[in-house]
Design a protein around this nucleic acid. Structure first.
Ligand SMILES: [Zn+2]
Ligand SMILES: [Zn+2]
Length: 817
DNA sequence: AGCACGCCGACT
DNA sequence: GTCGGCGTGCTC
């Protein structure tokens, strides 16, 4: 008999497959199944990506176990994850594990145990230290102690402790974190009515407790959760045991599926679709019927009824027996939205959200896999749900940055992957937004996507006026911190408070970097090469561009008007609250920011308190801009649009435009027309002016010009290489070295910018510098060439965490690093 | 990611 | 000569 072999990938940053021999008894293994295999001195769960009759490596080890009966990963999903890994430069394994439920990895790892109670003087200082760390909590994995003790010399010292006979290692099986849930049930046997007659003592018992006889008789053949059974019958456990002995019923263990229950909503009034909605659905319909791939961009103002369009299209897709994925930014995953979809889909819906337990995720994943789910709703990870026969992917609020995964590999953008996945499945994509990303709208204008415009609001409520307060001229309420408020804004707030109405005040999160802005004319120093604001460095009194590195001395006077320059770093919500209370002492203010929402449910608590009218003013960062509308809020104030505008990112104007538009959309819901007031020193900035007039097309045109002139997306592709290092000089040197290494080989294909300091210059004790690549759309339109050169030149250094250093690659960064 | 190995300077 | 800090390279 000839041996068979498999190629396996792991959820590790190693971009290669590993060969294993398959023992005879495990020959049922197929690509897409999980296997437990030896790897180094441990055993890991990997996924088989290929079955073959020759080994890809001399003398491979044996597969220890096959963990699945059927492949968990389809051939198509293999292709998708492989593409994701190649496009975003991660390992295949890391991309592939996106398509599996979390926490399903079994492993065998070495754990450390003590042989002696106390350290003695045969140990050096460092060895003693490590011994004590282990003694604190023996029997854990090496990685556990390494994290506690620190990386440096860890293995060295640990092995010395072993050699000296203080500790020993033992391989221990570590089970998967996500487990199926089993519960005890009571099964009532069918022949209960006849059988009970044989047991006089039981009949006597029934005489006393006739309700039990009724209970049992009504449930013949049924399985009842044991705890429920005991509670409902108020029977004692010994009695139950006796009944089981008599064969009247039996106790069984059954797998139960964890499901999240939503209360049903009252029947919604029959919705009459608007003309625009009808037209939108009609535009999409042919592709649904032909099952032909296409991407539709629905540009619909807030309140134009995009969600109803999704729902109507979803109905058609489901009616054809196809499945659908609805992607929604986590923050918008509110019960109200979810219920609307639930209403349409019924029980065959799976809703994923970040607070779900591993077990719930596991059960829903299996429900999808087994074909019991027709529609998945969730944030970006829901895209990889194992649905068969996919017909539709909706990406709501497609411009949202949360679709891009930033912390962990692969750094994928679910919106873009969705389009690729839909193409593979001949499915239809609906991208929806009131403020589409420049990229998407540009694609729509170029006929890559079909454009659907929805300009009217269902309720016919006018978009509220957005009033821009020119802080250069406006009268302030006072000096010092009180210069934060214009008299106009404070007057308006007071007016609302006297009418017992509520106010929301928004402040941008503090910028990571300081910037200069003239308080007379609003001038912000901009890099002449990159069109982004220059970052102010107190050290050396200089201004520096964090893309190309351009540096000039900081201005003492405004070059525009000669005015006195101010250095401004944005004001935290805490200081704003203090100043606000100085101006309006009787105001009841709720603050919602990083500090006040640390607790698990603090979010909801604050929002609820505000909704119940226990405060007049809700003051917070952008996080309160979305996903909520309060009936009694009639004024939304933006304290300063300047912090947002000055973020050194070419998308800063786009983000401000989106924020202001969104705020306006929210403020103007319900019957009352709200009012939006925006304070800014950059009164004439195009993003602010176009937001004031709700003019997306105008904004798009102007912004597109900037992008074209300074060569940014959608005209070029960007790739950023981020160097993290403990030591500042090393960071700079390493970044310079990388830029230098890449310049010559990339000369034809990409412009190499930098080295330059990152937007966040220091995080977790690591300095951050970046090299930015602008790919040449003529010579390397897909980016494949640049990526292969990148891999070739930086190769194994990428993504590999070293003691003090790490190098990350971000393909299509959505916020500059 | 996790781990071993080997080099080298520091310190018995 | 050991210890321990650190970079490099392998894991089928
Ligand atoms: Zn000025
Ligand atoms: Zn620049």
């Amino acid at each position: 008999m000839k041996d068979i072999f498999v190629e396996v990938v792991f959820n590790l940053p190693i971009n290669q497959t590993f060969s294993y021999r398959v023992p005879q008894e495990l020959s049922r293994v197929q690509p897409g199944m999980r296997v437990l295999v030896p790897f180094g001195n441990q055993f890991l769960t990997g996924v088989v990506v290929m079955k073959r009759d020759r080994p890809g490596f001399p003398n491979p080890k044996d597969v220890v176990d096959v963990l699945d009966e059927l492949p968990l990963i389809t051939e198509k999903m293999m292709q998708l994850t492989r593409w994701v890994s190649e496009y975003y430069l991660s390992s295949w394994g890391q991309a592939l594990f996106l398509a599996l439920p979390r926490g399903i990895e079994e492993a065998v790892k070495e754990k450390v145990f003590l042989l002696k109670d106390l350290p003695d003087d045969t140990l050096t200082q460092r060895q003693r230290e490590l011994f004590l760390v282990i003694a604190e909590n023996p029997g854990n994995t090496k990685a556990y102690y390494r994290k506690k003790f620190g990386y440096s010399s860890f293995y060295n010292l640990l092995n010395i402790l072993k050699k000296k006979g203080f500790v020993y290692f033992e391989q221990e099986y570590i089970e998967a974190q996500a487990r199926e849930l089993f519960r005890q049930f009571v099964h009532i046997n069918e022949d209960y009515p006849q059988l009970k007659e044989k047991f006089p003592d039981f009949l006597k018992y029934l005489k006393r407790r006739p309700e039990i006889d009724a209970y049992m008789s009504e449930r013949l053949g049924q399985d009842i959760l044991k705890s429920k059974f005991l509670e409902e019958t108020r029977m004692s456990p010994p009695t139950l045991a006796k009944m089981c002995r008599y064969g009247l019923c039996q106790q069984i263990t059954k797998k139960v599926e964890r499901r999240i229950h939503f209360e049903d909503v009252e029947e919604p009034k029959i919705v009459k679709l608007t003309d625009e909605q009808t037209a939108a659905i009609k535009a999409v319909e042919p592709n649904i019927e032909k099952e032909a791939f296409a991407t539709f961009l629905i540009h619909g103002v807030t309140g134009s009824g995009k969600t109803q369009v999704y729902i109507e299209v979803l109905k058609k897709v489901l009616a054809r027996g196809k499945t659908a994925i609805i992607l929604i930014p986590e923050i918008a995953l509110t019960p109200q939205t979810v219920r609307r979809f639930k209403k349409v889909v019924g029980d065959e819906i799976a809703i994923f959200h970040s607070k779900m337990s591993l077990g719930e995720r596991l059960d829903y994943w299996h429900a999808c896999y087994e074909g019991r789910i027709q529609c998945v709703v969730g944030p970006r990870s829901a895209l990889f749900a194992p649905l068969d026969n996919l017909g539709l992917i909706v990406v709501d609020e497609e411009h949202e940055h949360t679709y891009k995964q930033t912390e962990i590999n692969p750094h994928y953008n679910a919106r873009d992957v969705a389009i690729y996945w839909a193409r593979m499945n001949n499915a239809v994509v609906l991208l929806g937004s009131a403020t589409p990303s420049l990229e998407s709208y540009y694609n729509a204008l170029n006929k890559k996507y079909a454009l659907i415009e929805m300009k009217k609001r269902i309720d016919d409520v006018q978009m509220p006026a957005v009033e821009i307060i020119d802080m250069r001229r406006a009268k302030k309420v006072g000096q010092g911190e009180l210069r934060l408020f214009s008299q106009l804004l404070i007057d308006k707030i007071n007016e609302r408070l006297s009418k017992k109405e509520q106010v929301i005040l928004l402040q941008n999160r503090r910028g990571f970097s300081a910037f200069e802005q003239c308080s007379e004319c609003g001038f912000i120093p901009i890099c002449p090469n990159c069109d982004i604001s220059l970052t102010y460095h107190a050290h050396g009194e200089k201004l520096q561009c964090h893309l190309c590195g351009y540096t000039i001395p900081a201005y003492q006077f405004c070059p525009n008007c000669g005015g006195r320059q101010i250095v401004y770093k944005g004001t935290g919500t805490q200081r704003i609250e203090k100043a606000l209370l100085e101006v309006i002492p009787h105001a009841r203010v709720l603050r919602m920011d990083r500090d006040t929402t640390r607790g698990k449910r603090s979010h909801e608590t604050i929002l609820q308190a505000f909704a119940e009218g226990r405060a007049d003013i809700l003051l917070g960062t952008q996080m309160i801009a979305k996903g909520l509308d309060f009936g009694r809020v009639t004024l939304v104030g933006v304290i300063s649009a300047d912090v947002g505008l000055s973020i050194p990112d070419f998308r800063a104007p786009e983000r401000i435009f989106q924020l202001l538009t969104q705020v306006a959309g929210r403020a103007g819901r319900r019957q009352k027309v709200g009012e939006v007031m925006v304070q800014t020193y950059s009164y004439s900035h195009y993003a602010i002016q176009f937001a004031r007039t709700h003019d997306y097309a105008g904004f798009f045109k102007e912004e597109l010009n900037h992008r074209k002139n300074f060569r940014y997306p959608p005209f070029v592709r960007l790739i950023q290489i981020l160097v993290l290092h403990k030591d500042f000089m090393e960071t700079v040197n390493k970044t310079r070295e990388i830029a230098h290494k890449l310049k010559a080989p990339l000369a034809k294909y990409a412009q190499v910018l930098g080295p330059a300091p990152g937007i966040i210059q220091r995080m977790n004790n690591l300095h951050r510098w970046v090299v930015t690549l602008k790919l040449n759309p003529q010579t390397d339109p897909t980016g494949k060439i640049t990526k292969s050169i990148l891999l070739q030149k930086l190769g194994s250094a990428l993504e590999k965490k070293k003691k003090n250093q790490q190098i990350l690659v971000d393909v299509d960064p959505i916020t500059l690093n």
